[in-house]
């Protein structure tokens, strides 16, 4: 079975995939046990599967394991833990910016990438920056508050 060398959350790892076109999402979830990224649509429309690839928010449901090879991949587990959350995670917790939480991974990972490019955003910029991530519980006002809070830290 073909092997793929990945760098995930700072650690080098090798995964097997019978199909080089297998989306990174399934490799992360099922081969590496990283369940933070979620399957939402498989179409790149909702953002629930978002990870950082070389620091940039990327939809892992439409990125193949082959394309991801050789790049630095960060999942939400790699940012922080409940005991030691990263500043964006801490801001989401402080604002209670979740209901079911299925979109939360994508919101936080997209916010990480967005805040790196736009460290001092306006509310309108946050809405646009996260504009392609969907939240069916519509917890948007809290997510907005959380991203603005993270930007102030």
């Amino acid at each position: 079975m073909p092997n793929f060398k990945l760098r995930v959350n700072g650690r080098a790892t090798t995964v097997e995939s019978w199909d080089p076109a297998q989306p990174l999402l399934y490799v992360l979830r099922n081969s590496l046990g990283l369940h933070g990224p979620k399957f939402g649509c498989g179409l790149g429309q909702c953002g629930a599967c978002t990870v950082l690839i070389d620091g940039k928010a990327t939809r892992s449901c439409i990125t193949s394991v082959k394309q991801a090879q050789g790049h630095a991949i960060t999942t939400i587990e790699g940012l922080g833990s409940p005991e030691k959350p990263d500043p964006v995670q801490a801001a989401f917790i402080a604002e209670q910016a979740a209901q079911c939480g299925y979109c939360t991974n994508g919101m936080i990972m997209t916010a990480k990438s967005f805040l790196r490019q736009t460290p001092h955003p306006t509310a309108a910029q946050v809405k646009q920056g996260l504009g392609r991530n969907l939240c069916r519980c519509a917890t948007y006002t809290r997510i907005l508050a959380a991203v603005l809070r993270a930007a102030k830290v």
Binding site: L34, H35, G36, P37, T75, I76, E77, L79, G80, S81, P82, P85, Q89, F92, I93, Q96, A97, A98, G101, T104, N105, I108
Partner: peptide, 10 residues
């Protein structure tokens, strides 16, 4: 549940 949901642990 929110800290776990925000860190991929839930």
């Amino acid at each position: 549940d929110v800290p776990d949901k925000c860190t991929g642990r839930n």
